[in-house]
Amino acid sequence: EAEIKAARERAIVPLEARMKQFKDMLLERGVSAFSTWEKELHKIVFDPRYLLLNPKERKQVFDQYVKTR
């Protein structure tokens, strides 16, 4: 159900806005820029903003977040 709702939101909200919300979530959840995606996943997986991006986009935004922190 959450994935269906997220898919609707992905269709409406522009990618750039969704990427910003995802980055904000990473900051708010205290995701370490010195860790790996796999180790940090448990901090963010239950946040509704996690589903704003598809899996490939999530990883790309995380990688970008790590490089710029």
Rank of each mutant, 00 (worst) to 15 (best):
A2F: 09
E3A: 04
E3I: 12
I4E: 08
I4M: 01
K5L: 12
A6T: 05
A6W: 07
A6S: 11
A7N: 08
A7D: 05
A7W: 05
A7C: 02
A7Y: 05
R8H: 14
R8P: 05
R8A: 06
R8W: 04
E9F: 04
E9H: 03
E9S: 07
E9M: 10
R10K: 14
R10M: 15
A11C: 10
A11E: 12
A11G: 09
A11F: 08
A11T: 15
V13D: 05
V13P: 08
P14T: 09
P14A: 09
P14K: 05
L15T: 12
L15E: 10
L15Q: 11
L15K: 14
E16S: 14
E16F: 09
A17R: 11
R18Q: 03
R18A: 05
R18F: 02
M19I: 10
M19N: 04
M19Q: 11
M19C: 07
K20T: 08
K20V: 14
Q21N: 08
Q21H: 04
Q21D: 11
Q21F: 09
Q21K: 08
F22S: 00
F22Y: 05
F22I: 01
K23E: 06
K23N: 09
D24Q: 08
M25N: 00
M25H: 01
L26K: 01
L26F: 08
L26A: 00
L27Q: 15
L27R: 12
L27G: 13
L27M: 13
E28S: 05
E28R: 02
R29M: 08
R29H: 12
R29P: 00
R29L: 11
G30R: 10
G30Y: 02
G30W: 01
V31F: 02
V31A: 03
V31L: 02
V31N: 00
V31H: 00
S32D: 12
S32R: 06
A33N: 06
A33C: 14
A33I: 13
A33M: 07
F34K: 14
F34L: 15
F34R: 13
S35K: 03
S35G: 07
T36S: 11
W37N: 01
E38W: 04
E38G: 07
E38A: 09
E38K: 15
K39T: 06
K39L: 09
E40L: 02
L41I: 07
H42F: 05
H42V: 05
H42Q: 08
H42K: 11
K43F: 01
K43L: 02
I44C: 12
I44G: 02
I44L: 08
V45T: 13
F46G: 15
F46L: 08
F46S: 15
F46W: 13
D47S: 01
P48R: 10
P48N: 12
P48Y: 10
P48L: 04
P48Q: 06
R49G: 02
R49N: 02
R49D: 02
R49T: 04
R49A: 04
Y50V: 03
L51M: 06
L51P: 06
L51G: 11
L51S: 09
L51C: 07
L52I: 09
L52T: 05
L52M: 10
L52W: 04
L53G: 00
N54D: 06
N54C: 05
N54M: 10
N54P: 08
P55H: 10
P55C: 06
P55W: 07
K56C: 07
K56H: 09
K56W: 12
K56Q: 09
K56F: 14
E57R: 12
E57A: 07
E57Y: 13
R58N: 01
R58S: 06
K59E: 15
Q60W: 08
Q60V: 12
V61C: 10
F62R: 01
F62A: 02
D63R: 07
D63N: 15
D63I: 04
Q64H: 07
Y65R: 02
Y65H: 05
Y65Q: 03
V66R: 10
V66D: 03
V66A: 09
V66W: 04
V66S: 11
K67G: 15
K67W: 10
K67L: 15
K67P: 03
T68W: 06
T68S: 12
T68H: 15
R69A: 15
R69N: 05
